[in-house]
Simulated scan of single mutants.
Amino acid sequence: RKYLSLERYFHKEIARVQSAWYAQQSERGIKYPKSSKHIQRLYRKKQNTVKDYLHKVTRWIAEYCKKEDIRCVVVGDIRNIRKEKDMGHKTNQKFHGLPYNRLYIMLEYKLKLYGIQLIKQEESYTSQCSPLSPEVSKRHAEASNRKERGMYITDGVRFNADAVGAFNILRKHLSVSGKQKELSVTGLKTPEIIKVAA
Rank of each mutant, 00 (worst) to 15 (best):
K195A: 10
V176W: 08
I116A: 13
R16L: 07
R158T: 09
K37R: 14
F10C: 01
L111F: 03
G165I: 07
I70R: 10
Y125K: 01
H38T: 05
K66S: 12
A197Y: 10
E13Q: 07
Y43P: 02
R146F: 05
Y109K: 13
I70G: 11
A62Y: 00
Q93A: 10
S177P: 00
A141N: 04
V74I: 15
Y152F: 15
P33N: 04
K110G: 07
H38W: 06
T186I: 10
D77H: 11
N145A: 14
S35V: 10
F95G: 00
D52R: 15
Y43K: 14
M106I: 06
Y43R: 13
I14A: 05
S133P: 04
W21Y: 13
E27Y: 13
L174P: 03
V185F: 09
L98A: 07
L113Q: 15
K46F: 04
E148S: 13
L42K: 13
Q25S: 01
T126R: 12
Y125N: 00
R41Y: 11
A198R: 15
K179Y: 09
K31P: 09
D69A: 09
K45D: 01
E7A: 04
G115D: 08
H173G: 05
E135R: 14
L111K: 02
V196G: 14
R149Y: 07
G115C: 10
V176E: 12
T91H: 07
K12I: 00
E68C: 06
D86C: 03
Q180V: 11
L4R: 07
I119L: 10
L111M: 05
T49F: 10
Q180S: 05
K181E: 09
F159L: 01
Y22C: 07
E7L: 12
S144T: 03
V74C: 03
A163D: 12
Y125A: 03
S144Q: 13
Y64T: 10
K94M: 13
G29Q: 14
K2E: 06
L183W: 05
K51D: 11
N168W: 12
R171K: 08
S127L: 14
A198D: 11
Y53L: 09
A23R: 08
S137W: 00
D86Y: 14
H11L: 12
E13Y: 11
A166F: 11
D162G: 13
R71T: 08
I39S: 02
H89G: 01
